[in-house]
Deep mutational scan, measured.
Amino acid sequence: SELMNSSKLIRMLEEDGWRLVRVTGSAHHFKHPKKPGLVTVPHPKKDLPIGTVKSIQKSAGL
């Protein structure tokens, strides 16, 4: 199965306009000026399962 580095996923979010608002432990929480909701990324993780990545991307509207 495909894995993604959390840094790469965070870069994709930031390029889309998401900004880090809070860190709780290894959970990084992002908000967007125009899009609704809060997106949480486990970080640092070298090997996020593709299912997790897809669900984060979906929440972020990517």
Rank of each mutant, 00 (worst) to 15 (best):
I50A: 12
L38H: 07
L9S: 01
R22E: 11
L62T: 04
G61A: 06
H32V: 00
F30L: 05
K58H: 13
K45Q: 10
E14P: 00
H29F: 12
I56E: 02
N5M: 15
I10G: 01
S55Y: 11
V53M: 04
K8P: 03
E15L: 11
G37H: 05
V41G: 00
R22T: 10
P44T: 04
L9H: 01
S55I: 07
K54I: 15
G37R: 06
P44R: 03
V21L: 08
S55C: 10
T52Q: 10
R19Y: 15
K34T: 14
M12F: 07
L62S: 03
H43M: 03
L20S: 05
K58V: 13
H28E: 04
I10T: 02
L3V: 12
F30K: 00
L48R: 01
I56W: 01
N5R: 06
K45M: 11
A27S: 14
W18E: 00
V53Y: 04
E15P: 00
V53L: 06
S7Y: 15
M12E: 09
V23L: 06
K34L: 11
M12Q: 10
P49Q: 06
M12K: 06
E15D: 13
T52E: 07
W18Y: 03
G25A: 14
F30S: 00
L62C: 05
K31R: 13
E2K: 06
H28G: 04
R22C: 10
R19G: 07
G61E: 05
M4P: 05
W18S: 00
M12D: 07
S1A: 10
P33R: 07
S1N: 14
E14L: 07
H29K: 10
D16N: 07
H43C: 03
H28N: 08
K58C: 09
M12A: 08
R11E: 12
S7F: 15
H29P: 01
I50N: 10
P36T: 09
V39C: 04
A27T: 09
V41Q: 00
P33W: 09
K54N: 10
P49C: 06
S1D: 14
L38S: 07
D16Q: 05
S55H: 15
W18F: 03
K46R: 11
S59Q: 15
D16V: 06
N5L: 09
L20W: 04
F30Y: 08
L9R: 01
K45F: 10
S55K: 13
M12C: 06
G17E: 05
S59P: 02
V21F: 12
T52H: 06
V41R: 00
P44D: 03
G51K: 14
K46P: 13
K54C: 10
G61V: 03
A27R: 10
S6F: 03
V21P: 00
G17V: 00
S7R: 08
H28F: 06
G37L: 05
G25H: 15
T52Y: 08
L9V: 10
K35M: 03
L20Y: 03
P42R: 04
T24P: 01
D47M: 11
V41T: 02
K54P: 02
S59R: 13
S6D: 01
P36E: 10
L62N: 03
L13R: 00
G51M: 09
A60W: 01
L62Y: 03
H28K: 05
L48D: 01
P36A: 10
